[in-house]
Design a protein around this nucleic acid. Structure first.
Length: 724
DNA sequence: AGCACGCCGACT
DNA sequence: GTCGGCGTGCTC
């Protein structure tokens, strides 16, 4: 008996066996199966002759969804992702698939489809149909001739074609498929700007590696023309009739890139894929990539799983960005998986960044990645970075006079300024001046943020809101003060100081409404906007031609963080936002308002010296035994009952005692944010100098953790965690 | 994940 | 006497 091994969207590692008789199945097919008392869409990952489940309990596959099976590379990627991140295969498979395809009825309901002859159909004897059944014979002859018939083609054979085909589909002679035969558009590129020597050399070296696997790190400061390098390579790949996957950290960055692409490649088809799309739309685009009619797929991390049968190149832009690591469910790194996928498909993988992650930089230095570098900015000189040393005596809004002076100067010249403060809200704390009480979230171990407009306190971790207290709840004092600065407070100070200037605030609050970001972007490019105040939303990848000043007003907070990646991240953020300043004819200036102007992070920023700083950090990490010199995994757990969380982790650690050679178990500790939305969070770090040893441990460990059913405790494994 | 089964406390 | 709380176990 033929058994199909099916992955289902359930949180168990096991596959489920189904009787597959009568279906022409291959791994990669989507099938509708009965599961429990419902039907589900499953992914066939293997076929077998026998099952450990007794025949009587095996259910039958109900039907095969009319979608081409997933290509082998996608299947292998799903398998690898499940193995490496130790997450159930079914759940990995179904993050990879557009949600629409998980609904049994969706594909069949789509209008245009075609029918392909199955092996069973091929095997039918000629005398299957009586001589006078001309419609059937004609239709079968047409199918045999071309293998696949479009709905419209079938109708020309006989008006009864669709009824017959449906009947034949039930008998397993033909299989319904989505029409995926649209023509691949031409890929003619318009002329791009001339390349610098560095760009040319990067293009040449990657071009020479097309057609085989090779990972590259392209290190290029803002404005050095990384995108132009991407475009030249895309041009070459498309001309060879192949596809490109281009990944970016967030949705916000896709419209701008799409527009540039359309401009440069008129007639070519780029589809963008991200979680913000409507289900149907996402499915359409996924299918266009699957069929090869979409030549370029532009998307966030989930685009990685898009099947691309003729992939020729994978690009990960801003590869250092944390958004490439999924932070819940399957905690995969799309950047790391991209390298694996490139190897599978034998195509080059290009990681680009002005400030690469230390992991990638280390790989480049140790020659595992090819190293490419763009140091010159064809469009502008590097920004001039100046430290503004401040003491503890700043006014409540936190802006110093040198910052005001610099902004005044820009306003007088009709140039734009950007004040960067990476906190939204008015003040990050509301405190009692008498007793020192600070307003905290009732559900999280964190202070609530004072939001001015709606006069409320909001928790940025769980969304909890409350009204402003009139008096201190502990001592009754009426003098409650906002401590520290958020974007709203800085905005208010700037509006007061420059009543005639247009001040635009850009943060998650001001862009929450649909299309708000688009409207603000237009405002920024219009004539009037003089001062922008914003969080890191403003730092990423946007071009502001009139912007000549970036003032970074409170970066020091990040220096106190205990996270060993804090300095790396701060530097990346500062470099990124600095890069917004200045264009061709107007040099940019960056002011850093700090109490510690001599801190290595700021010194490196002044010198715009990524490599020097990265070398230093790497050396520290090597000495201290931190990634990328060791490999880590974290068992995270959370529950309302803190003791249950501790007990769970202690018990889990005991499951592998004594710990295997080369792997270190650390004691369970509370997470940095120890309580969120009423749940206590703890974690347990496991570390090894050998990736293989760590993986072996996790393979043995994870099933044993899963065995102990601890219903109260939510847990997850995080391999290569980005934060602890 | 869903969903059923099952075994103890407060109600028409 | 039962309605329903959620702890436990299963889904091929």
């Amino acid at each position: 008996m033929v058994i199909a091994r099916v992955a289902l969207d359930v949180p168990v590692a096991e596959l489920f066996d189904y009787a597959a008789a009568g279906h022409d199945l291959r791994p990669g097919h989507l099938v509708a199966v009965p599961f429990g008392r419902k039907r589900q869409v499953g992914l066939v990952v293997g076929l077998a002759q026998h099952s450990a489940i007794p025949d009587a309990r095996l259910k039958r596959i109900e039907r095969v969804l009319p979608v081409e099976p997933l290509p082998e590379a996608t299947l292998k990627l799903i398998h690898f992702c499940s193995d490496y991140y130790h997450h159930p295969l079914g759940q990995v498979a179904f993050v990879a698939l557009p949600t629409a395809l998980r609904r049994v009825g969706y594909v069949a309901a789509r209008a245009s489809s075609c029918f392909a002859l199955t092996a069973a159909g091929h095997a039918l004897p000629d005398e299957q149909f009586p001589k006078r059944a001309t419609a059937m014979r004609g239709l079968m002859a047409a199918l045999r001739a071309s293998g696949v018939l479009q709905e419209s083609q079938a109708r020309t054979v006989t008006p009864r074609a669709m009824a017959l085909l449906r009947e034949w589909a039930d008998r397993g002679w033909v299989q319904q498929q989505l029409a995926e035969t649209a023509q691949v558009p031409a890929a003619i590129a318009t002329q791009g700007p001339p390349l610098t020597d560095e760009q040319q050399s990067a293009v040449d070296r990657i071009t020479s590696s097309l057609g085989s696997f090779s990972p590259w790190l392209l290190e290029g400061v803002t404005g050095s023309g990384k995108t132009e390098v991407y475009f030249r390579l895309i041009e070459k790949v498309l001309a060879a009739g192949r596809q490109v996957l281009l990944m970016v950290p967030e949705i916000n960055l896709t419209p701008q890139l799409e527009a540039r692409f359309a401009d440069r490649f008129p007639g070519a088809r780029m589809v963008s894929l991200h979680s913000g799309l409507a289900e149907g739309e996402r499915c359409e685009r996924w299918l266009a990539a699957r069929s090869g009619t979409a030549q370029v797929v532009l998307g966030t991390r989930l685009a990685l799983f898009t099947p691309m049968p003729r992939a020729g190149l994978i690009i990960v832009d801003e590869e250092h960005d944390g958004s490439f690591k999924q932070q819940d469910g399957v905690r995969y790194s799309a950047r790391d998986l991209a390298v694996f996928l490139g190897n599978l498909q034998q195509v080059p993988v290009l990681l680009g960044s002005a400030t690469p992650s230390l992991e990638s930089y280390h790989n480049a230095r140790s020659k595992r990645f090819g190293s490419l570098r763009l140091t010159r900015r064809p469009a502008a000189d590097p920004p001039r970075v100046r430290m503004v040393e401040v003491g503890g005596d700043l006014p409540p809004h936190g802006l110093s006079n040198p910052v005001f002076d610099a902004i005044s100067g820009r306003l007088a010249r009709g140039e734009q300024s950007l004040v960067f403060i990476n906190r939204r809200g008015f003040a990050p704390a509301l405190m009692c001046a008498a007793c020192g009480w600070a307003a905290e979230c009732s559900r999280c171990s964190a202070r609530v943020v004072w939001h001015l407009q709606d006069k409320r306190l909001r928790c940025h971790h769980c969304g909890h809101e409350e009204g402003l207290p009139r008096v201190c709840p502990t001592c009754g004092n009426q003098d409650l003060r906002g401590l520290g600065q958020g974007t709203q407070r800085v905005e208010q100070a700037l509006v007061e100081r420059y009543p005639d200037a247009k001040v635009l605030r850009v943060d998650r609050d001001s862009t929450r409404r649909k299309h708000a970001w688009q409207a603000i972007r237009e405002d920024i490019h219009g004539d009037r906007a003089g001062i922008l105040v914003g969080t890191q939303m403003l730092a990423k990848g946007h071009d502001f031609p009139k912007l000549t000043l970036v003032a970074i007003v409170n970066p020091d907070a990040a220096l106190y963080a205990t996270d060993f990646r804090a300095a790396e991240r701060l530097f990346q953020q500062l470099m990124q936002v600095s890069g917004r300043a200045g264009r061709a004819d107007r040099p940019g200036e960056v002011l850093v308002q700090t109490r510690f102007p001599d801190h290595p992070v700021y010194r490196a920023l002044m010198a715009q010296d990524f490599r020097g700083f990265a070398d230093e950090l790497l050396e520290e990490r090597r000495r201290a035994g931190f990634p990328p010199f060791v490999f880590q995994a974290v068992l995270r757990a959370e529950a309302h009952d803190e003791r249950a969380v501790e007990a769970f982790l202690a018990r889990s650690a005991g499951l592998v005692a004594p710990s295997p050679e080369g792997v270190t178990f650390y004691d369970p500790v509370p997470a940095t944010l120890a309580r969120v939305a009423g749940r206590h969070r703890w974690h347990l770090l496991v570390q090894s100098g050998s990736r293989a040893a760590l993986q072996r441990l996790l393979s043995a460990w994870r099933p044993r953790i899963a065995e102990g059913r601890s219903s109260r405790v939510r847990w997850s494994l995080d391999v290569d965690p980005l934060d602890l």
